[in-house]
Simulated scan of single mutants.
Amino acid sequence: MTIALARPSLSLFDSWSETVAEFGDAHIDGAGLERGQAHDRGACAALIEKAELYADGDATLPEGHVACDYFWITDDGEVVGFIAFRRELNDWLRSYGGHIGYSVRPSRRRQGIAGAALRLVLDRAREQGYDRVMLTCDDANVGSFRTIEGAGGELEAVIDGSAADIPQLRQYWISL
């Protein structure tokens, strides 16, 4: 297994499309997609354009959005998941989202992929001068909170997400 981070690219379209299809109608954390969004070539091209815009620190983003680096998690050139590094926290992200969101293709879970990708993004955050980053996960998502804790995450709080129409969340900080 060779886990790497790739910027969104049409050269990985087939693999990206298969991965998005495997999630079905579920929300895909870190992918930059809306729930149930199409996974055709046009949707991929639009996502690439979005990723380029959000990566530009000088870009004007939609209200409530922050600069973000979107990556596709690859294993030997195959897209196996998604991870996003949000470079700042707005009010919603400070409560519910955090700096980093990620998802691994259902058929590739429990293989250490999320942990490997998270370490790569944490290295990038450290190189960019961040002292610590925040992550959240559903309180019931044992795999995710074990991944975060394995990367040094310290539980800050358990948050009732009902006000935002989301499940109860675990909020972690990772010191870099």
Rank of each mutant, 00 (worst) to 15 (best):
P8I: 05
R108T: 01
H65T: 13
D69I: 00
R41K: 14
Y96D: 01
W16P: 08
W72V: 05
V79C: 12
F23S: 01
V121T: 10
F85S: 01
L61G: 02
W16N: 06
L89Q: 13
A26L: 11
G30A: 07
D69W: 12
G77K: 02
R86K: 15
L118R: 05
H39E: 02
Q37A: 15
D76K: 10
V133A: 08
R105N: 14
I113Q: 03
E63A: 12
R87A: 05
R87G: 03
R124A: 14
F82E: 08
A67E: 08
S15W: 11
G36W: 10
D58E: 14
A46C: 01
A51S: 13
L5D: 07
R108Q: 14
G32N: 09
G112E: 11
R105D: 04
G42A: 15
V80Y: 03
A67Y: 05
L61T: 08
L53I: 12
V104T: 10
E127T: 04
A84E: 13
D91E: 15
L33G: 02
R86M: 12
D138A: 13
L89Y: 10
T136S: 14
A117V: 03
R110G: 00
M134K: 12
R35K: 15
D40K: 04
Y130S: 07
V20D: 02
Y130T: 01
P106M: 05
E34G: 13
L10I: 11
R126P: 00
L61H: 08
V133E: 09
I73Q: 04
W72H: 14
S107C: 07
D25E: 13
A46G: 06
E127R: 14
V121S: 09
R35V: 12
S9P: 02
G81Y: 10
A67V: 06
G30H: 04
F82P: 06
A43C: 08
E49G: 08
Q111P: 00
S107T: 12
K50M: 13
E63D: 13
A114D: 05
D29L: 05
T60E: 14
H99L: 04
V121D: 03
R86P: 01
Y102K: 00
S95E: 05
Q111R: 15
Y54D: 04
L53P: 02
S103T: 07
A51R: 10
E18V: 00
G24K: 07
H99S: 04
V133N: 07
T136M: 11
F71M: 03
D69H: 13
G64Q: 06
G97A: 05
C44T: 07
D56N: 15
R87T: 08
S15G: 01
R108F: 12
G98N: 01
L33S: 05
A38E: 15
C137P: 06
S11R: 11
L120M: 09
A51D: 10
G42I: 11
L122Q: 08
A67P: 15
I48F: 01
F13L: 09
L53F: 00
F13S: 05
L93N: 12
L12R: 12
A51E: 10
